[in-house]
């Protein structure tokens, strides 16, 4: 069964904690440690929610994530990390309330993910895999 939630985090501890908290909330997820893996997981699973943990990532990776955000317009996106970085995502179509700055708040993340999964935006518009794949390739400059 495809995962409803994809987590991207280069920090295995933070990623593991988020994954564990979601699991305890009844949400299966997939954890990816690299941007391209995350992109592939998104294409393969067409998730309802994607979590980008920006802690400790390189500037180039931040740009790639911002590009990904554009391709994920029909998917719930949650951005985590230092305030100075997550705030820059609000200009990329991510709502302020979905940019959560540190410290990592696992309970808040779980409740936001649940809300997003239940929201009409992500519930009623399942991702079209082919469209998403072509969008992602374009934004990740893989063509």
């Amino acid at each position: 069964m495809p995962s409803q939630v994809i987590i991207f985090s280069t920090d295995s501890l933070r990623g593991g904690i988020i994954q564990e908290v979601l699991k305890r909330s009844g949400l299966e997820s997939l954890l990816a440690g690299r941007v391209l893996e995350a992109g592939q997981a998104i294409v393969d699973n067409a998730p309802r929610v994607v979590i980008f943990d920006t802690k400790g990532i390189f500037p180039d990776e931040i740009n790639l994530l911002k590009n990904l955000c554009h391709a994920l317009r029909d998917t719930g996106v949650l951005v985590l990390g230092d305030r100075s970085i997550v705030d820059t995502f609000s200009g990329e179509g991510i709502q302020n309330g979905l940019c959560l700055s540190d410290p990592l708040d696992p309970d808040l993340i779980a409740s936001k993910v649940k809300q997003m999964i239940l929201s009409p935006k992500t519930k009623e518009k399942p991702l079209q895999r082919d469209d998403l794949e072509s969008d992602l390739k374009q934004f990740l400059k893989l063509d």
Binding site: S3, T10, L22, E28, S29, L30, G33
Partner: peptide, 28 residues
Amino acid sequence: RDFLSEQRERFETFKGQALGGDTQSTGE
């Protein structure tokens, strides 16, 4: 930057080996 990338690459490879794949699922 190259060094850090290399370190991360090595860590990811190790993690992948240890956990049996690139992505870790909480599925069945």
